[in-house]
Amino acid sequence: MSSHSNSKIELHKVGQSFVTNQHSVSLFSDLSFSIEQGRSYAITGPSGSGKSSLLMLASGLEQPFSGEVVYSYNGQIQPISHIRSEIGFIFQQFHLLPEFDALNNVALPLKLRGDKQALAIAKEWLEKVGLGHRLKHKPAQLSGGEQQRVAIARALVFNPKFIFADEPTGNLDAQSAGEIADLLFACCRDKGAGLVLVTHSDYLAQQAQQQLRFNAGECQWLSTELGSKCHA
């Protein structure tokens, strides 16, 4: 699939803050950038700096305190909720369904969509992520790295336009983290999905085409290929 696409998520001057002990704490403000399908973005920074909040805003899971998040397709602006079915998530805790084996975990998105080839496609994806020999294993019988591979396959099996990953290697050892990072980027690249990931891992962040760093109350693009601005 071509890396170029006319689908993108646009954040216009979004800001987020929360109230604690009657004090309002601003995480970031006036943040504007676009997430294009087919490109990869990494959000880094220390804990509590607002990385996960930005992920949730960008994916439409939360409403921004200020500004707006929209979906743009061929120049037509639509609410972000319109692409909910085109977004997949990958989590630090994997969140596989413990009662299903690997094959059925991966097949879940297709089954929910009524795809009769669900199991066959899921099997292909498990082979692609190197788990062709673990089809019938339940999550409890898999290592952390294997579970995250299953989660990546599950997130991509329905060909989403965008993948949002929250510290996908946070629970893995260094070797597994490297393998998962390579796999994640390769899969997104192959399927032409936009990838937004939150991570503490420099190795993972460096593989992204765009890197947004939160630090000491500020955020900045480490590569400014798109020329986006950031204020925190």
Partner: peptide, 15 residues
């Protein structure tokens, strides 16, 4: 948890 996982792979809450 199940519904949230379904939603994380693009399904609706109704599913």
């Amino acid at each position: 948890h199940f519904t949230a996982v379904c939603m994380s792979v693009g399904a609706s809450r109704f599913e």
